[in-house]
Amino acid sequence: MVYDALIGPFTEFEFMRRALAAVIALSLAGAPIGVFLMLRRMSLVGDAMAHAILPGAAVGFLLSGLNLFAMTAGGLIAGFAVAILAGLVARSTGLKEDASLATFYLASLALGVTIVSIKGTNIDLLHVLFGNILAMDDQTLLVVAFNATITLLVLAVIYRPLVIESVDPLFLRTVSRAGGPAHLAFLALVVINLVNGFQSLGTLLAVGLMILPAGIARFWSRDLTAMICIAVVAAAVSGYAGLVLSFQTRVPSGPAIILVASVLYIVSVLFGRVGGILRQLFPGRHLEA
């Protein structure tokens, strides 16, 4: 009975196995990026980037139909352009990163909509908006796994400057020039993972599998390494449970995954060891020293 509900779908159906593989790959790469987004107070930047990617994907769709590579390429170009331009403007002028990004992503969104309306085609963007992880073919799965691998490799390379830049940017500037490139590489990773996620979760929810696990992790640990591990596990568990939920009910897969993550988040807010509400209400007697 339990086996039928929890494991059966995956042994029985290939599309469920593919979906599970995809969601694990997304968790491994996206969750660490999410942790850094959160710690650098850039959670909403991920959201803005998701909007910036949308027109690029739409243009890719216009040019070559429902070709995932074209849409991915379009999304990557739009995302990179916005991320890098915004990063450069913020670094070379006094404008704050969030303001700079907001202007560029709005411009990108407007440009995308303009291009689409000039073409006059009535395209179905629902697929792009909400994705469909259950329709994952081998090729797409390989792209997702490839992007996840690249993400982890690049993150390993920029990890040290990224951490120091997050804690003490001025110090990094005085000892090294790695801060700027590390920051841009990080923004690029954000874009790659958003594009990676929109094939399975859709443009708007892709950022969910990055930010929600990071939020969950913050309530369970004060250590960066532990936070990253917890975030990856939380993302993978949400992915698995979301797929099961979606299989057993009629909830679409993308929202199901994010809803499970949201439930985990609420549980963490209430019962988390680090700053959880219950912990604050009943902190225990104060200590000797």
Partner: peptide
């Protein structure tokens, strides 16, 4: 620096 731009909330030992 006089007022270091250090993010004290960052989880680092």
């Amino acid at each position: 620096p006089q007022s270091a731009e250090i993010d004290r909330s960052f989880p680092i030992s």
